[in-house]
C-alpha cells in the first residue's frame, strides 16, 4: 500500500517523465557514439557488449547517478515543501515505512532507466555488430549487476534527502558525493567501494572474482545503508 501511496504523491512532480527522459538521454549516448565513430569500435577485438559499455558506460552511469540524486531530492522535497511530512508523522505507520516506500519507488524508476539503456545497448549491438549468441544473457548479467551496485547510492541519497529540510542541502551533498566518485581511481579496490563510485563499474570489464567481490560489496553496502537510514530516522525523531 505504502508504495502505491508514494507513487500517488509523485503526481505532477515530473518524476516519471524525468526518469523516462533521462533514460532516453542515456540511451542516446551509445547510439550517437556508434553513429559517429563506428569504425573505431568495430575494429576492436572484444564482445560487442563489452565494447559498447567500455565506450559509453562512464557517461551513462554519470547520468544515472545524477538522476538518482535528483530523484531522491524530489521524493523528500514533496514532503517538506508544504509540510506534508508533519501529517505523515501523525499517521499510524512508521517513518521508516515511508522511507522504504520511497526506496521502492526510486528502485523501480531505476529499473525503468536501466531497461531503456539495456534496450539501447541491445539495439546498438545488433545493428552495428550483428546478432550474437548469448547477447540477452550478457546484457541481463550486466544490467542486473548495475542495479545491484546502484542500490547503496539510492539508499544513501534518500537518507540524505530525508535529513535535509532544504532541497539544496541534499542536492549539494549528492553532487559532492558524485564528484568524489569521479575522482576515485578504478584501480584502487578499497576506494572504488565508495557507494557513489560503485555504479560506474561494469560487469563485463571485471574478472569473475572481481565482479563477485563488487557484487558482495554492493549487497553489503545496501544492507549497511538501509541500517544507517533507519538509524538516522530514529536519531532525528528523538531530536524533534
Amino acid at each position: 500500500m505504502i508504495v502505491s501511496l508514494e507513487c500517488k504523491k509523485l503526481k505532477r512532480t515530473g518524476f516519471k517523465a524525468a526518469f523516462f527522459g533521462g533514460g532516453i538521454l542515456a540511451a542516446a549516448v551509445p547510439a550517437l557514439n556508434m553513429a559517429f565513430r563506428s569504425e573505431a569500435y568495430l575494429s576492436m577485438d572484444a564482445p560487442p557488449v563489452k565494447i559498447l559499455l567500455n565506450a559509453n558506460w562512464q557517461m551513462m552511469a554519470m547520468l544515472n547517478v545524477l538522476l538518482i540524486v535528483a530523484g531522491a531530492c524530489i521524493l523528500y522535497h514533496i514532503e517538506y515543501a508544504d509540510h506534508a511530512i508533519r501529517k505523515m508523522r501523525t499517521l499510524p505507520f512508521s517513518e521508516s515505512a515511508v522511507f522504504f516506500g520511497k526506496t521502492a519507488v526510486l528502485v523501480s524508476a531505476c529499473i525503468l532507466l536501466l531497461a531503456i539503456e539495456a534496450a539501447s545497448i541491445f539495439g546498438c549491438s545488433v545493428h552495428w555488430f550483428g546478432p550474437a549468441a548469448g547477447l540477452y544473457r550478457e546484457i541481463l548479467k550486466n544490467f542486473g549487476f548495475f542495479l545491484l551496485l546502484m542500490l547503496p547510492a539510492i539508499l544513501l541519497s534518500l537518507a540524505a534527502a530525508s535529513v535535509c529540510r532544504n532541497m539544496w542541502t541534499a542536492l549539494g551533498t549528492g553532487v559532492v558525493c558524485v564528484f568524489a566518485a569521479t575522482m576515485i581511481p578504478a584501480q584502487n579496490f578499497a576506494l572504488s567501494l565508495f557507494p557513489f563510485a560503485l555504479p560506474f563499474r561494469t560487469f563485463s570489464d571485471l574478472s569473475g572474482s572481481a565482479a563477485r567481490n563488487y557484487a558482495i560489496a554492493g549487497a553489503a553496502e545496501t544492507v549497511g545503508a538501509a541500517a544507517l537510514a533507519i538509524l538516522i530516522l530514529k536519531i532525528r525523531r528523538s531530536f524533534e
Binding site: 518524476f15 535528483a70 531530492c73 524530489i74
Partner: peptide, 14 residues
C-alpha cells in the same frame, strides 16, 4: 518543476 530544472542542468554538464 524542480526535478526538470535540476535534471536538465545536471544532464547538460555531462
Amino acid at each position: 518543476t524542480p526535478i526538470f530544472s535540476i535534471g536538465t542542468g545536471l544532464a547538460s554538464i555531462v
